[in-house]
C-alpha cells in the first residue's frame, strides 16, 4: 500500500511539473468558470411586444395587457412602433390600421429578432386578426406540460453549458494521464520501478489511483466553481464523476500505451476528446442528434449529469445509463491494463 501511495504522490508531482499539462488543466477549469459566471444567469421569459391600433385600441387593450408572459408597449403612431422595434425596446411590433376601410396588420421585426420570436409574433398577429374580424377560431386550445413545468424557472443556457465544461475538464485528463503512462514506457522509468519490490499489479493500481484522484479532484473543483454542488446533488454528482473518472482512466491507459510520442498522444487524445464531446451538443441543441450518439459512452454520463444537476432527477432514474457506462468502463479498463502489461513485460 505504501509503495502504491509513493507512486501516486510521485505521479501527481510529475504531472503538475509538466508546465503544458498543468496549464491546460487549470486554465480549462478557470476559463470555463469565468465563462459560466459571465453568461446570463436567468432566462428572459417575458415576450415584449409593441402595439399600434389606428382605431379600436380601447376594445382590446385590457385583453392584450392581461396576456400571460407578454410585456405590452403601446405606441401612439406607426413610426413610434417602428422606432420601438428598431431600438430593440420590443422584440416585435404589431400595427393594426385601416387601409381603404379594410383592416391591415403589419408585423415589425428587427434583423436581430430571433426566428422563433418572429414566428411567435406571426402567430399572435394571425390570432388577433381572427379575433378582430369577429371570427375567432372554432378550436379549443389547452396547454399541458409533461414533467415539471419550468415556467418562471427555465434552465439558463449557461447551466446546460456546465455539463459541456465538466466533460471537457475530464477529457483534459486524457493528456495528463496518457502522457504520464506514455513517458513511463518511453523513458523506461517504469523499468526502474519494476526492478524494485514493486510488482506490475501494484504499478498499474497506482496509475489507476492517480487518474481517479486527479480527475475527481479537478471535477470537484470545477463543480464548486460552476455552482454544481448542492446538498442534494453532491452525492450523485460524485458517483457520476467517479464513473467519468474511470472512463477517462480506462481510455488514457490505452492512449498512453499505444502512443509512441507526445505528438501521437495529442493526436489520439484530441480524437477521443471530440468524440466524447459530441453527446454534450444534444443538451445544447435538443432533438438534433442521431441514434448512434447513444453508443458513445460519454452520452451515458452527460444525460444523468444534466438530469440530476439541472432538473432535480435522482440517480435511480438513470440506472440503465450508469450500467452501460460502468460496463463500458470495465471492458476498456481491462483492455488498457492488458495492453499496458504487454508493454511492460
Amino acid at each position: 500500500m505504501n509503495r502504491i501511495l509513493s507512486i501516486v504522490k510521485k505521479d501527481v508531482i510529475q504531472i503538475f511539473r509538466n508546465r503544458f499539462i498543468a496549464v491546460i488543466t487549470f486554465l480549462a477549469i478557470f476559463v470555463y468558470a469565468i465563462i459560466f459566471h459571465v453568461m446570463p444567469s436567468k432566462v428572459e421569459e417575458m415576450y415584449s411586444m409593441g402595439f399600434y391600433f389606428e382605431k379600436g385600441r380601447e376594445a382590446v387593450e385590457e385583453q392584450i395587457s392581461e396576456e400571460e408572459g407578454v410585456e405590452v408597449v403601446w405606441a401612439d403612431d406607426e413610426n413610434e412602433l417602428k422606432k420601438l422595434v428598431e431600438d430593440e425596446d420590443v422584440q416585435v411590433g404589431l400595427s393594426f390600421t385601416l387601409l381603404e376601410g379594410k383592416p391591415k396588420i403589419v408585423l415589425y421585426t428587427s434583423t436581430q429578432t430571433p426566428e422563433e420570436i418572429r414566428e411567435a409574433g406571426d402567430v399572435i398577429a394571425r390570432e388577433a386578426a381572427y379575433s378582430l374580424s369577429g371570427y375567432p377560431l372554432n378550436v379549443e386550445f389547452d396547454e399541458v406540460v409533461i414533467g415539471p413545468d419550468l415556467l418562471g424557472e427555465q434552465i439558463p443556457f449557461r447551466n446546460k453549458m456546465r455539463i459541456l465544461f465538466v466533460v471537457m475538464i475530464l477529457s483534459v485528463e486524457f493528456f495528463a494521464l496518457g502522457n504520464l503512462i506514455s513517458e513511463e514506457i518511453r523513458k523506461k522509468t517504469a523499468d526502474a520501478i519494476l526492478v524494485t519490490p514493486v510488482s506490475i499489479p501494484e504499478f498499474m493500481t497506482a496509475k489507476v489511483a492517480t487518474g481517479i484522484f486527479l480527475t475527481l479532484s479537478e471535477g470537484i473543483l470545477a463543480a464548486f466553481l460552476l455552482n454544481i454542488i448542492s446538498f442534494d446533488t453532491v452525492l450523485p454528482f460524485v458517483v457520476l464523476l467517479f464513473l467519468g473518472a474511470l472512463l477517462v482512466v480506462a481510455v488514457s491507459f490505452v492512449l498512453g500505451t499505444i502512443s509512441r510520442s507526445f505528438l501521437g498522444l495529442t493526436a489520439y487524445g484530441t480524437l477521443f476528446m471530440i468524440v466524447f464531446m459530441i453527446p454534450t451538443f444534444t443538451l445544447i441543441f435538443p432533438g438534433g442528434y442521431s441514434f448512434w450518439i447513444k453508443a458513445v459512452p460519454s452520452y451515458h454520463l452527460i444525460i444523468p449529469l444534466d438530469g440530476i444537476i439541472n432538473y432535480g432527477y435522482v440517480l435511480s432514474d438513470y440506472l440503465p445509463e450508469m450500467a452501460y457506462l460502468g460496463s463500458f468502463n470495465i471492458v476498456v479498463l481491462l483492455l488498457g491494463l492488458y495492453v499496458l502489461r504487454r508493454r511492460l513485460t
Binding site: R3, S6, I13, K187, T189, A192
Partner: peptide, 22 residues
C-alpha cells in the same frame, strides 16, 4: 538508458526510489 524522473530533483529521485524499498 538514463531512466530518471527529469522533472524531479536528484534528491527527490533518490527519496522516491527509497520509498519503493520501504
Amino acid at each position: 538508458e538514463k531512466n530518471l524522473y527529469e522533472e524531479m530533483s536528484a534528491i527527490e529521485n533518490l527519496k522516491f526510489f527509497a520509498s519503493l524499498f520501504g
